[in-house]
Amino acid sequence: MTPALPPAEIRALARLLDELDYYQLLEIAPEAGTSEVKRSYYTLQRRFHPDANRGLDQETRSCLETIARRIAEAYAVLRDPRRRKAYDGQRDGEEAALRIPLVAAEAKTQRENIEETLGRTPNGKRFFALARADIDKGDLDAALRNLKMALTFEPANGFFKQKLTEVQDAQREADDRKRAESR
């Protein structure tokens, strides 16, 4: 079955571990799809899993375990679109950390979602809050104005855009109704 790896190779990889990002570790390209992530995880765990390598000395064995744990970590991040997004963001950022705590990755994405739904910038937040109040009051024209203002500060905010479309649709419906009534 699995050819046992040479102990020297295992120890060398263990030393190198902190210099590899998750993509390098899994031997895949940053744009690799989920199925590729999975395939690579299977292959590598087969190669490095302690179950697949027996009869090693204590030191090599513990190196192997470290590697196997890190591979599982990389997999846990890259197979999950939310975690992967947070990781990619961090990788491109200034810190350029090669690892991300699993829980933090989750929290980060969650926070981003929250930010998106409330606004990321002070002005974006302010106008969006006004728009929400307008919607509650049923003043669609005002809501539309405020949403457009919010979007000038946060043009990429998908949630704002979505709200804008909703309000526009609602307004169109209201107009249609008015027209029908007047006829």
């Binding site: 744990r69 890190r70 599982a72 970590e73 997999y75 705590p101």
Partner: peptide, 17 residues
């Protein structure tokens, strides 16, 4: 109690906080 490793995470695994 703060989560350090979430359920259904593949094992073996190691996480630091």
């Amino acid at each position: 109690a703060e989560t350090v490793i979430e359920r259904n995470t593949p094992v073996p695994i190691e996480q630091s906080r």
